[in-house]
């Protein structure tokens, strides 16, 4: 399968400052999260992928198309929702989204039809004849999303889509991203400071710091791997339980008093732990999967680099 985004020693320089430094990776997930502190180069990377900045070294490919030589084609398959305010103030939302659809190549009637659909889809159906300049911040975010999806792109780049949204609106936006990801043949790149948004929606995460990739994580694989890592709080012969688990091939370790951590070996399920505990008359007060949150991953990446 052709990767969604391939970076090959991608470097971007503004004047004498290196903003992106030799980024190399291949991303194929349906939703790709871009994380990093302020000034890490996330927006520059997005802008470079869209052809707004010229790479000073290396290159990037989107769906196999080189951004240096095929930028027009790349742009035709991408929908972009910028971070900052971006709209045409004296236009109604439907005219605005229609214009963007037409500029993407849709014939006028098709653009109008899809503008209505996109605005209903993002939840602006009732306000679609209002001028975009009169919208609240949250509504402007939704209008930006509508213009990004009006032409049905294969890749949607969302730059801080939940910025300035109140909690219900944020929830709605996250739900919409998940729905687009799950129900359709579309890939999403999500650039956000909010780790929770990225964790909820993304399969792959790329963490940038000072223009370099400091961590790549396939959250889906990690989630699957972490399902084997349990933490429990037994009351009774804890050491005996640990020995029994080790006898089944699990790795065990004590942490903080009675707490026991175990990495389950292949074929061992949770019910086996309960069975062993019952055989030894041990109470299990608490048992849960322990996995690294995205915050743990992010902080670790920041510390180690």
């Amino acid at each position: 399968m052709t990767p969604v985004i391939e970076l090959e020693g991608l470097g971007v320089r503004f004047g004498k400052r290196d903003i992106l430094k030799g980024l190399t990776c291949s991303l194929s997930g349906r939703t790709i999260g871009l994380l990093g502190p302020n000034g890490a180069g996330k927006s520059t990377l997005i802008n470079t992928l869209l052809g707004f900045h010229k790479p000073s070294s290396g290159t990037a490919r989107i769906f196999g198309h080189d951004i240096r030589s095929k930028i027009t084609h790349v742009r035709s398959v991408v929908g972009y929702m910028p971070e900052n305010d971006a709209f045409i103030a004296n236009m109604t939302a439907v005219a605005f989204v229609r214009l963007m659809g037409e500029l993407s190549g849709l014939p006028s009637e098709a653009a109008l039809e899809r503008a209505h659909e996109a605005l209903f889809y993002v939840g602006l159906g009732e306000a679609r004849y209002r001028k975009v300049g009169t919208y609240s911040l949250g509504m402007k975010q939704l209008a930006k999303l509508a213009q990004a999806i009006v032409h049905g792109p294969k890749l949607i780049i969302l730059d801080e889509p939940t910025n300035g949204l109140d909690p219900p609106a944020r929830q709605r936006m996250v739900r919409m991203i998940k729905e687009m990801r799950d129900a359709h043949d579309v890939h999403i790149v999500l650039c956000s400071h909010l780790l929770r948004d990225v964790e909820e929606t993304c399969e792959e995460v790329l963490i940038l710091k000072e223009g370099r990739i400091v961590h790549y994580s396939n959250l889906e694989e990690e989630r699957r791997a972490n399902r084997r890592f349990v933490e429990m709080e037994p009351i009774g012969d804890t050491a005996g339980l640990a020995l029994a688990l080790e006898g089944l091939g699990c790795e065990c370790a004590f942490s903080g008093g009675q707490r026991l951590k175990a990495v389950l070996s292949e074929g061992i399920e949770i019910r086996d732990i309960y069975r062993l505990a019952a055989e030894r008359d041990i109470q299990l007060r608490r048992l849960n999967y322990r996995r690294d949150t995205l915050e743990d991953i992010f902080l670790k990446a920041m510390e180690t680099n």
């Binding site: 035709s76 910028p82 971006a86």
Partner: peptide
């Protein structure tokens, strides 16, 4: 001027335009 004031230019140029 209105396109510049409202930051609309990225929306034009992220398309094949």
């Amino acid at each position: 001027a209105p396109d510049l004031a409202n930051g609309a230019l990225p929306l034009y140029f992220c398309r094949s335009f």
